[in-house]
Design a binder for these strands. Structure first.
Lengths: 172, 172
DNA sequence: TGCAACCAGTTGCTTTTCACAACTGGTTAA
DNA sequence: TTAACCAGTTGTGAAAAGCAACTGGTTGCA
C-alpha cells in the first residue's frame, strides 16, 4: 500500500478523489450544465457552494487530473475548466448515481427528468454523450450521423419542457 | 426544495446519503466481503475505520433505509446488518466506481481483479449478483440454472488466485 | 479617463466533522 | 469463574466545512 492512500482498492481510491459532498456536484455542473468558469460554478450552483470550497475542489480536481485549467483568450483574468478523459469517464458513475437517487430519494420532477433519460438510454446513450464531451472539452471532432440531436440538447430540452409544463399547471 | 436537503437533484440527494469517505466502503465490505457484523466490519476493514465512525455510519445507513439491522439468534448481543433493496441497488454505482478507479488510479492487482470482472461482465453480471444479494439479504430464493456458479464465488476465486500467484512469484 | 461591473479567488472566523485511543457493560464458551 | 467476544460510547485534539467580507486586477462603456 502506498503511503498516501488508505488502501489500493479501486473503490477506495475513487472515494479518496471524489468522496465528499461537493466534488461530484461540480463535475455534474460542468457535464450537464456546461459550466466552465469559476463564477458560473459559484453563482449558478443550486446547492450554493462557498467560494473557498469551490476554489479548493477545483484545485484538487486539477491536481488529480480530472479537470484541466486554461486561460480564456477572451478575458485575461478568465480561466476555463475542462474535463480530461479521466473526468469524462466519470459520466457512468454520475449516471448510476442519478438513476439511484431518482429511484430511491425524493427528487423533484424537473431535476429528475435527466436521470430518467439517462436511465432509459443506458450505456449506449452515455457513450454518445461522452463523445460530445470529448468534442467540447478535448477538441476531438464528433462524427455524428445526419440529423443527430446531441444528448446534451435532448436533456436540456426535456428539462425545459418539464419546467414549462409546471408553469402552465401553476397558472391554471 | 425541502428544508432538509440542499437541493432535490437526484445526484445531490445520493451524495447527501453516500457522499463521504466511509459509507460506500462499508457497503462494499457488506456486498463483496459478506461482512454482516459490527466487529467484522471494524476489524477486517482494510482501510482501518474507527469504531465511532463505523457506529455512526451504520446508524445513518439504517435510518436512510440502505441497511437494516436485526438480532442474530445465535448470540444475544450480536446484530446482523443486511442490505435492503435500496442498498442492493447501489451495486451498479459501486461497480462503476470500481471500474473508474481501476482504470484511472493506481489500484493493486489483487484488489483490482474484482473490478476487472465487474467491467467485463457488465450490467448482466451485476444483475446476477444482485439476485444473489437478494437471496442472502432479503431471503428471496435464487432461481439459478443447473451448474450456476455464483458471481460472489467467482469474484472470490479470482481474488484468491491472484493472491496465490503473487505468493508463488515471491518465492521464486 | 473614470467608474461600475466582472474576474478568480483569499482571508478570518465559527461550527461541524474526523480520527484516535481508551473505555463500558453485557454475553458466551470452556 | 474467567477469558474472549459483542456492539458500541466517551473524551480529546486536529482537520474540514461553512459563512461573510475582502483583495487585486480586468473590461466595457460613458
Amino acid at each position: 500500500m502506498s503511503a498516501d492512500h488508505r488502501s489500493d482498492c479501486p473503490i477506495n481510491l475513487t472515494l479518496e478523489v471524489l468522496g465528499d459532498r461537493w466534488s461530484l456536484l461540480i463535475i455534474r455542473d460542468i457535464i450537464f450544465g456546461n459550466k466552465r468558469h469559476f463564477r458560473e460554478l459559484l453563482t449558478q450552483s443550486i446547492e450554493g457552494i462557498a467560494s473557498n470550497i469551490l476554489a479548493d475542489r477545483l484545485k484538487r480536481l486539477v491536481e488529480e487530473g480530472v479537470l484541466s485549467k486554461a486561460d480564456d483568450p477572451s478575458h485575461k483574468q478568465k480561466a476555463v475548466y475542462s474535463l480530461t478523459e479521466k473526468g469524462i469517464q466519470l459520466l457512468p458513475v454520475l449516471a448510476q448515481m442519478a438513476v439511484w437517487g431518482r429511484k430511491h430519494m425524493p427528487a423533484s420532477e424537473e431535476l429528475a427528468i435527466r436521470a430518467q433519460l439517462l436511465d432509459e438510454g443506458g450505456p449506449p446513450l452515455w457513450a454518445d454523450f461522452m463523445k460530445e464531451l470529448r468534442e467540447r472539452h478535448l477538441g476531438i471532432p464528433l462524427k455524428a450521423p445526419r440529423g443527430y440531436v446531441p444528448v446534451f440538447q435532448r436533456l436540456q430540452a426535456a428539462y425545459e419542457e418539464v419546467v414549462a409544463r409546471q408553469k402552465a399547471m401553476q397558472r391554471s
